[in-house]
Design a protein around this nucleic acid. Structure first.
Length: 229
DNA sequence: GCGACAG
DNA sequence: ATCTTGTCGC
């Protein structure tokens, strides 16, 4: 797979998605396996308002208290347009660059976007999980594919994201009084375990800490703490 | 054919 | 994704 060239068209990307979706392993990865040494990483991408360059942030969070432990940032010019259903072909390159700068390899990756709750069951979380060969979970703020009832108002309430009768993800009330988030497994994890891992990192905000912190850093509005350049 | 459409 | 401050409420 490392010898494949990066798709340069939506048609090529589509063919790769269909092919690679077949490589995904949705297996058990219970949150009970979490240790004080488990490397939990969150990634997200933002756009530099001035240069239009993509900026990816990879953050390492404490597995127990979910606090920020380390971070890495990378920037790059987008080489693929944003096309619904093909987001990973635009964001994955710069995310991989940020991950490469991080001192550790992730044991589990939280990504901003869909996992298998995708038209071809190959959202950005699947793409990253395969390339990093590690469990991954997709955390999206809106639904791209499938249907789901609105979950109950209470924290932790969830409803299945369904596609032709199959449960591919979950709409989760990660915070009361706020619109739900849509999570789905990417690779090497199943739906129920993905839900448990996500709940473990929801600490009072809509987004679970890994993606919330990555989002904050990738979007520069937190730059007052690193603008000592 | 007409909308919908992660970030 | 991004344009954007203060303000109301749990």
């Amino acid at each position: 797979m490392t010898t494949d060239e990066w798709p340069q068209s939506v048609a090529a990307a589509r063919a790769q998605q269909i092919k690679w979706a077949g490589k995904l392993k949705l297996q058990s990865f219970p949150v009970s396996l979490l240790r004080a040494t488990t490397r939990v990483v969150g990634v997200d991408v933002g756009v530099d308002s001035a240069t239009q360059q993509l900026r990816a942030a990879a953050v390492l969070v404490d597995p127990i208290n979910a606090e920020l432990r380390d971070m890495a940032v990378a920037t790059a010019t987008a080489q693929f347009p944003y096309v619904p259903g093909y987001l990973s072909y635009r964001e994955v390159p710069v995310i991989l660059a940020a991950l490469a700068k991080l001192a550790v390899t992730p044991d589990i990756l939280f990504c901003d976007g869909q996992g298998i709750a995708h038209p071809r069951q190959f959202g950005i979380a699947c793409h990253l999980g395969l390339l990093q060969n590690c469990p991954s979970i997709g955390i999206a703020k809106s639904l791209l594919f499938g249907t789901a009832k609105s979950p109950a108002a209470k924290f932790g309430a969830h409803s299945v994201i369904e596609v032709q009768g199959n449960a591919v993800g979950m709409a989760l009330r990660s915070r009361e009084q706020v619109k739900p988030i849509y999570l789905s497994p990417g690779h090497k994890i199943n739906l129920l375990d993905a839900l448990q891992w996500t709940l473990h990192f929801c600490r009072g905000f809509k987004l679970p800490e890994p993606t919330r912190l990555a989002d904050q850093i990738a979007s520069r509005r937190h730059k007052k703490w690193q603008t000592v350049d």
